[in-house]
């Protein structure tokens, strides 16, 4: 088997066997569907929603992606700023650590009261959940810039800004992408929390509403879709890294 094929066949095989084992076990032990639905139950539960499942998935995806973009727009510049300016760093880092320390599930209902029940609130929740890893990794990457490259920029006469843009930021790319990979999966969690407390559509909303009606297989189907979204987005970030910043992967492997 070729290595590329192995990478697909092995995990898919494991996954299918897991599903099969689960199905057989829940039939053999006759597990009640409200306790633990079998894969087929889940499939049927999802099917019951019909086309609604698609529109709700798209709604959640919208929340995740917009929130993630906001988190990048906040996290990357913040990471740059705290890494290059000591005073600003000392001023705002504690505040940011504090913001990140707030349990998002606890503050989400309060945010709904403050900002209302529309998309804005959901975006705030998603941004708050996932900007931190993006920021911290960006800052770490900026500080990790090899000293020789900074020396080069200085002798070449680069301004402070030129140094940041021409050397520090590009050399932080691998770190920034580590942050984005973590951030995008956390954004999924943030979106679900947002929909738990404040939505009348979306997969998070479907999970709560189906559970309330004891439609456990339907709720589980939504959870499965969320997991798939998470994996797909993670791989999408990976793909973007390879496609647009291939040099930063090859140099790492080459060293």
């Amino acid at each position: 088997m070729s290595p590329a094929l192995r990478k697909i066949v092995l995990p898919v095989g494991t996954f299918l066997s897991f599903l099969l084992g689960w199905q057989l076990l829940s039939e053999a032990l006759d597990v009640p569907v409200y306790l633990l639905p079998s894969p087929l139950d889940i499939y049927e539960g999802g099917g019951k929603l019909g086309p609604a499942i698609l529109s709700n998935t798209l709604e959640t995806l919208k929340t995740i992606l917009l929130g993630f973009v906001c988190a990048c727009a906040v996290g990357i510049p913040l990471g740059v700023v705290v890494s290059v300016n000591r005073t600003i760093s000392e001023m705002i880092y504690p505040l940011i650590v504090f913001l990140n320390a707030i349990p998002i599930i606890a503050i989400a209902p309060i945010l709904v009261v403050i900002f209302g029940t529309d998309m804005t609130t959901r975006l705030i929740i998603v941004t708050l959940t996932c900007f931190f890893p993006i920021m911290v990794n960006t800052a770490a990457g900026m500080m990790d810039t090899p000293k020789e490259m900074l020396d080069l920029a200085r002798v070449a006469g680069a301004s402070r800004m030129g140094e940041i843009l021409s050397v520090r930021l590009p050399s932080a790319i691998p770190f920034i992408f580590s942050g984005l990979r973590i951030g995008v999966t956390v954004a999924v969690v943030g979106a679900v929390v947002a929909e738990f407390v404040n939505a009348n559509k979306g997969l998070g909303f479907l999970v709560t509403s189906s559970t309330a009606q004891f439609a456990i297989p339907t709720a589980t189907a939504c959870v499965v879709i969320l997991a798939v979204i998470s994996v797909v987005l993670y791989e999408a970030v990976n793909w973007a890294h390879r496609a647009f910043f291939g040099w930063s992967i090859k140099t790492k492997a080459g060293e």
Binding site: P146, E148, M149, L152, P170, S171, W247, S248, T251
Partner: peptide
């Protein structure tokens, strides 16, 4: 002493 090319 070392080449110090910018890898990007």
């Amino acid at each position: 002493q070392r080449p110090t090319l910018l890898p990007w």
